[in-house]
Simulated scan of single mutants.
Amino acid sequence: MPTTHRSYAGYVALGDSFTEGMCDDLLPDGHYRGWADRVASALAAERADGDFRYANLAVRGKLIGQIHDEQLAPAAAMGADLVTLAGGLNDVLRPGCDIERVEQLLGDCARELRAGGATVVMFTSTDPTRRMAGSGRLLPTILRMKAFVQELGRQDGFAVVDLFSAPCFDDRRLWAEDRLHLSPEGHRRVAEGVLEALGRPAAFDWRAPLPVAAPPGRTERLRADARWLRTHLGPWVGRRLTGRSSGDGRPPKRAELLPYSQES
């Protein structure tokens, strides 16, 4: 259920590339900014005392079992009063996904974080079938995950950002060239969705479609498809076949709950 507007002193983000911020603008330290950083900046600006702390434990490529085993205990120990939790989609993308196990682990994470007193924000996945050919096989599992997350969201202390029902995410301009990660505009809209779920007044309609633009020509589409196959899909398939992940050996970008200002 939506939360009331309250001030938060600490925020921890858990998840995979979605929460790490892949394909948003780059920060001076070389990390991607991402919607979670944008949320942290907005919440830090609300603190008159300047006392706001932020950690982001998300790492690209992580499966829900890795999020559970590697991120849950450190996040719970930080004792932040706000947590965002997004995970399971990397599992869904893989053949033979055990959706019951995904739900069990995601639910365990959510309940343990909530038991520590934190407000827990979760997400439904966008609908890939409205923008990616061949993704229809994923829809039954994505719909099941959507129902699972929304059921959790009805409990006290939880909030859900429903990306599935937002028509703006059908637009390829909200996605990076790899078609899997959000563009800067996509991250901006997710951040606004989180702030709205936390009871903040809307700065803009984050669900609204972008202004109509002329569709790309056939030649441009074919070139873009070929570049995507060569640059993004091929390496992704290669990692799946060899059991590797883009996040192997990569540490979180903000592993500790440290002071954070809107200028950070």
Results as ranks from 00 to 15, higher is better:
residue 132 M to L: 15
residue 163 L to W: 03
residue 123 F to S: 08
residue 208 A to K: 14
residue 106 L to I: 01
residue 86 A to I: 10
residue 204 F to R: 07
residue 131 R to G: 08
residue 247 G to L: 02
residue 157 G to S: 06
residue 136 G to A: 12
residue 155 Q to F: 08
residue 240 R to D: 09
residue 9 A to C: 05
residue 23 C to D: 09
residue 127 D to S: 09
residue 163 L to R: 13
residue 166 A to H: 10
residue 227 R to E: 15
residue 5 H to I: 09
residue 62 K to I: 01
residue 130 R to H: 05
residue 209 P to N: 04
residue 100 E to T: 14
residue 196 E to C: 06
residue 262 Q to K: 12
residue 197 A to W: 13
residue 245 S to C: 09
residue 174 L to I: 08
residue 179 R to P: 00
residue 249 G to Y: 09
residue 60 R to W: 05
residue 148 F to V: 10
residue 236 W to F: 14
residue 127 D to H: 04
residue 134 G to K: 06
residue 252 P to S: 09
residue 114 R to F: 04
residue 16 D to I: 03
residue 24 D to P: 04
residue 256 E to I: 02
residue 245 S to M: 11
residue 48 A to N: 12
residue 6 R to Y: 04
residue 50 G to Q: 14
residue 31 H to G: 03
residue 152 L to N: 05
residue 40 A to E: 05
residue 91 D to M: 06
residue 120 V to A: 05
residue 67 I to H: 00
residue 192 E to Y: 12
residue 210 L to H: 07
residue 85 L to E: 10
residue 235 P to R: 14
residue 29 D to R: 07
residue 81 D to T: 01
residue 217 G to L: 08
residue 213 A to H: 12
residue 257 L to V: 01
residue 221 R to S: 12
residue 220 E to M: 10
residue 70 E to Y: 08
residue 242 T to Y: 13
residue 237 V to K: 09
residue 32 Y to D: 11
residue 39 V to D: 01
residue 57 L to E: 10
residue 250 R to Q: 13
residue 140 P to E: 09
residue 171 D to E: 12
residue 32 Y to E: 03
residue 251 P to T: 06
residue 187 H to C: 09
residue 5 H to C: 11
residue 2 P to N: 15
residue 134 G to Q: 11
residue 64 I to Q: 13
residue 251 P to W: 05
residue 205 D to V: 07
residue 227 R to A: 15
residue 160 V to I: 07
residue 64 I to P: 03
residue 241 L to C: 10
residue 169 F to D: 01
residue 195 L to C: 14
residue 84 T to H: 00
residue 120 V to S: 02
residue 171 D to A: 03
residue 81 D to R: 02
residue 108 D to F: 00
residue 58 A to Q: 02
residue 37 D to H: 07
residue 68 H to Y: 14
residue 93 L to S: 10
residue 263 E to N: 10
residue 164 F to L: 13
residue 132 M to R: 04
residue 87 G to M: 01
residue 60 R to A: 05
residue 178 D to S: 14
residue 104 Q to Y: 02
residue 86 A to S: 13
residue 133 A to V: 10
residue 257 L to S: 00
residue 110 A to E: 02
residue 256 E to D: 12
residue 135 S to A: 12
residue 65 G to F: 07
residue 231 T to Q: 15
residue 216 P to A: 10
residue 98 D to C: 08
residue 114 R to M: 03
residue 227 R to C: 12
residue 11 Y to Q: 00
residue 175 W to M: 14
residue 36 A to Y: 01
residue 29 D to G: 05
residue 211 P to A: 06
residue 46 E to M: 07
residue 169 F to P: 01
residue 179 R to C: 10
residue 105 L to E: 01
residue 238 G to H: 12
residue 187 H to W: 11
residue 26 L to P: 09
residue 128 P to D: 06
residue 255 A to V: 15
